[in-house]
Simulated assay, not measured.
Amino acid sequence: MLRGIDPVLSPELLRILRAMGHGDDIVIADANFPAESCAAELVRLDGLSAPQVTRAILSVMPLDDFVDDPVCSMAIVGDANTLPPVVALMQSVIDEVADKPAAIKPLERFAFYERARAAFAIVQTGETRHYGNLLLKKGVIASPE
């Protein structure tokens, strides 16, 4: 155990978050997401919800503020303008925890899969609510001087 580190962050996930560089993407995926076939690196956090994992990751990782869309979700097929309830919860977490909160941009399903395949890693949660998927782009931690 470490002080100040959310216990949701496993040693494997902490290693991945530390290894990621500015502009790298990490996906928080629901239980139905095809993570095994998409992931370069896969961390499983079965039993945890997507909002819980979002909160933990954003407690240690900054969002990229050099791009227009540092946070993306998978748009509902056939209804891209509707925000899924679980995504609304994740937006609340982002607004509360992120050092530079950003609005979640919906991506068409296959565009989301394409970005997920190119991501540094995928974290598969136990989230059972539909469309509980989020893509986060890592930002820069500013120098103290």
Rank of each mutant, 00 (worst) to 15 (best):
S49C: 03
K137H: 10
A56R: 02
P84G: 00
A40R: 14
R44E: 09
P7V: 04
C72N: 15
A102Q: 06
I94R: 11
A75V: 09
L2D: 11
N81P: 12
R129E: 01
A103F: 06
M61P: 04
P101Q: 05
G132A: 12
I94D: 01
P11Q: 00
E36A: 08
A31V: 04
L136F: 03
L42M: 08
A80S: 15
A31G: 12
D69W: 10
M61V: 15
Y113K: 11
N81R: 13
P62H: 05
V87L: 13
K137S: 13
K105Q: 14
P51V: 09
A40Y: 03
D95P: 04
L9E: 02
I26K: 09
M1Q: 08
D95M: 02
D65M: 10
A29P: 11
L136A: 02
A19Y: 02
L58A: 01
P106I: 03
V60G: 13
L136D: 01
C38P: 12
E108T: 08
H130N: 14
D6N: 08
A119I: 03
L2Y: 13
E12G: 00
D95T: 08
H22I: 10
L107E: 00
H22N: 08
P106N: 08
E114G: 15
D79Q: 14
Y131S: 12
R115F: 00
V8H: 10
R117G: 09
G132W: 08
R129H: 10
E12K: 10
V60L: 09
A111F: 06
F120A: 02
Q52R: 15
K105G: 05
I57M: 06
E36I: 06
V123K: 00
R129K: 15
P62Q: 12
G23E: 06
G132C: 10
A121R: 06
L83F: 12
D69K: 01
I57C: 05
G132Y: 10
Q52M: 13
D65Y: 09
S37Q: 06
H130D: 03
V123D: 04
R18E: 04
N81C: 09
F33L: 14
E108Q: 05
D68P: 07
P62Y: 05
A19L: 13
P144R: 13
H22D: 06
L63N: 11
L2P: 15
V87S: 08
M74F: 10
Q91A: 08
L45G: 03
E145P: 15
P106M: 05
A56D: 00
D79S: 08
E36F: 05
A31L: 14
L42Q: 08
G139F: 07
R18L: 09
D25G: 07
V27E: 15
G126A: 07
V67H: 06
V60D: 04
S73I: 11
F112S: 03
A56E: 01
M20F: 01
V93Q: 14
F110P: 12
G4I: 03
D69E: 14
P84A: 01
A102V: 02
